[in-house]
Structures are given as C-alpha cells and as structure tokens.
Write a protein that binds this DNA or RNA. Structure first.
Lengths: 210, 210
DNA sequence: TAGATTGTTAATCGATTAACAATC
DNA sequence: TAGATTGTTAATCGATTAACAATC
C-alpha cells in the first residue's frame, strides 16, 4: 500500500492502464514494458514508469511488468475490486444509455436505481429497474447502499438533484449537466460536458482553417 | 484577435465561461465580475482574470465585464459563431442520445449524419436522419462538409472508425470508446470515458472509507 | 558478459496562486 | 476622493521530460 499521496494526474491515468492491461491480457501477453503500456494507453513510457512506481515497485528491471499481476494491483489501488452501486437520476435518452451501458458491469459498477421527475416516466421499467420519483431518492440510496450518483438531468435541475444526492449520502457524483455544482468538500464531483468537448474541438478546427 | 498562443487549460475552461455568461444573461445581469464568473463556472476569480486577459482586455477596472459583450467575444474565440457539422458513428443507445441531444444545437453544432455497421440499424431514421452504412461514411462527410466526427461504437471498432473518419477528412474527433486512438498530428482528439470517470470516483470513495 | 528495462533523480516546463499597481 | 475591480507581475507549486544508475 502506497504511503505517499498519489498525484491526481496519475489517478486520472490509472483507468487507462487497467484497460490497456486487459487488452494485453486478451492478446495473450504475459509480460509488458512501459513502452508498450504507454502506446496502448496513450502516454509516454516515462510517465507510465513514474505513475506505476508511485504506487509501488511492481516491475522487474531488464524484464518489464507481469501483465496479470499489474492489472490486479492497479485495479486494487483504484478500488475496482469491490462492487460499487450507482444511482442514475434523469432517465432521458442519456439516462437510458447509461442504465444499459455494458462498460459499467465490466469495471465493477452496478446501476441499482433510476430516478426521474417526469410522472410519465416514473414506474416504467428500464434495464430491469422501475423508475422512482425524486421523493424516493433518499430511501433508494439508503436501501441499496449506493455510493455514487450520476446526474443526467437538464442543467436547470442539476444543482437540486446534486443537493438531494449529497443529502442522501453518496460520496461521489458524476454529472453530465453543463453547470458547475456546489458540493461540500468531502463529496467528489467529476463532470462530463459533451457540448464543451465539441467546443474545444471547434476552437482547434477554427485555428486550423484560419 | 489574440497574438499569443492560448494555453490549453484556458481553452478547456472557455466553454464553462460561455455557459456561465449565458446563465447571467438569462438572470438579467448586464455586468459581472471575475468573482461572480468564477463562482458560476467553478474556478477562482484569479484564474478567470488570467484566462480572459490572455484573450484580450475586455473588462473595465473598477467596474467588471459586460456580460453580453464578453459572451460574444469568448464564443467567437472558441469558433462557436460558425455552424459546425457533426457526424455520429455508432447508433446504439449512446449514439441515439447524442443524435437528439438539444445541448448541441444551442452551441452551434448540427448532427448531419449517422452511421452504423449493423445492417438491422442501417436505413432506420433517427432524429430525422437515415442511418448510413460504413461504406458511405466518406461520401457522407464530403457531401455534408462535416468537420467533426463522434465515435460511439464499441471499443473494438474504435480505431477502425477513427481511421475512416480521418481518411474522410474530419479535423476533430470526439470518442466515447475506452481506448487510446492513434491519429495524425493535424487531427484533434478528445476522449470521454464514462467508466474511467466512475473509476476515479471509486478511488476517492475507497480512500474516504479506508 | 551484454542488452534491456525499471526506478529515480534532476532539469524543464507550465499552471496556479498571491499580490498589487493601474484605473474606473 | 474612496472603493472596487481589472490586468499583470512575481512566487509557488506541480507535472512532464530527460537522463542514467541499478539490476535483471
């Protein structure tokens, strides 16, 4: 177990290493190098070595890394060995897609609850789960022991949903709403803003053509 | 027009400023400060001032920024004043959601084409567009003059789709597939990995409980 | 032994924070 | 004039890159 604090940039790259290691495993590679890992995860060999050595010394000089062992260790550092329960708020097109996303189960995440404010949607069954009304959110989180909430609502209700999730006791929130959220310091927020990503592409596109 | 190169971290924050300024405009604010903008966009006043001053001097000391004017200028820097045409490859649940996402049109992005490899999906009409087979991708991009491609396919086909988009001539790619993509240096790639975001939340969740 | 590759240190680079003079 | 707030500089901090000794 690492004693030093792991830098946030390193943590952000760990999931890519797990993915790359799984791909290598599927390809039948028993051993790999920082060079091959960098190639597969989109970073440089130097960064790979620095990141991995900040977690512990799991490679062998002159040889490389044991793929299966390293995958297990990095997944353990990320906390992917435990199942995590996730509640999705907002069951529009995006919420639907998230509720059914196969990439979650592979990584130990289970969607255990769906919530929507629209009475026409409440009660419908999506991905085997009956959609609950917002007033049942706290009870749902408590009953399922969910620790992560996903916000897939319009931006206008995002802060309200966020407050409800925090009050219900989740420790982490992933939001797709294009709006900054206020949360107490002990709650962790990650934001995905698809339109913002396109805007950044547009910036470079504009530069390229200028 | 700014002469100096704009730092990537600044570019990444610009869309949030545009959003915050639009919210302020909707609230009827004519003028704002770096403090209020920071609050709304999730950064500090110092960062706001530094970012904005790297684009030009658009504030007035002792007074603040003109909301409408600043919004227009930042949007112009991002290149949001021109309509951008977007092609979505992979029309599963996520592709469906993207094709219909209202947040795109608001920011000047129009989905002009849909492509899927599944013969059962090809020909179906989603969001007013007939889904095309992969072999029509190049023609589709050429005909619509699309400059941005979105990859919403399984990870296994992501690189192949990426190569086809590059060959078809798009300048920017937004991928949702959890896999590093190889592209020529003149093509810009942004990656959104939802499972990775959850994994990062899981890391902090684990620390919190440890 | 010779070649390969890690783990780590030092050097470079860039981003954030703090502070304040300029100026409305 | 006094108070407010920008634009900018300097100081701090953290991340990346380069290089190489350790070692398999």
């Amino acid at each position: 177990m690492p004693v030093r604090e792991i830098p946030p940039t390193t943590v952000a790259r760990l999931p890519a290493y797990v993915g790359a290691l799984e791909a290598l495993l599927a390809d039948g590679c028993a051993t790999t190098s920082s060079e091959a890992l960098g190639e597969r995860s989109g970073t440089s060999p130097a960064v790979v070595r620095k990141d991995l050595s900040s977690l512990g010394q799991w490679g062998r000089r002159g040889v490389g890394y044991d793929v299966a062992h390293l995958r297990e260790r990095v997944a353990a550092v990320l906390g992917l060995t435990t199942q995590r329960r996730v509640v999705v708020v907002g069951v529009g097109h995006l919420g639907h897609a998230l509720a059914r996303y196969p990439g979650f189960a592979d990584r130990g995440f289970t969607v255990v609850g769906l919530v929507d404010a629209d009475p026409a949607v409440v009660g419908s069954v999506v991905a085997g789960l009956a959609v609950q009304p917002p007033e049942r959110l706290a009870e749902l989180v408590a009953r399922t022991a969910a620790t992560i909430g996903i916000i897939a609502t319009p931006a206008t209700s995002a802060q309200q949903v966020c407050d409800a999730l925090v009050a219900a006791g989740v420790g982490g929130i992933l939001t797709f709403a294009p709006r900054a959220l206020r949360v107490p310091p002990e709650v962790d927020v990650r934001a995905v803003d698809v339109a913002a990503e396109l805007a950044i592409l547009a910036f470079h596109d504009r530069r390229r053509r200028a």
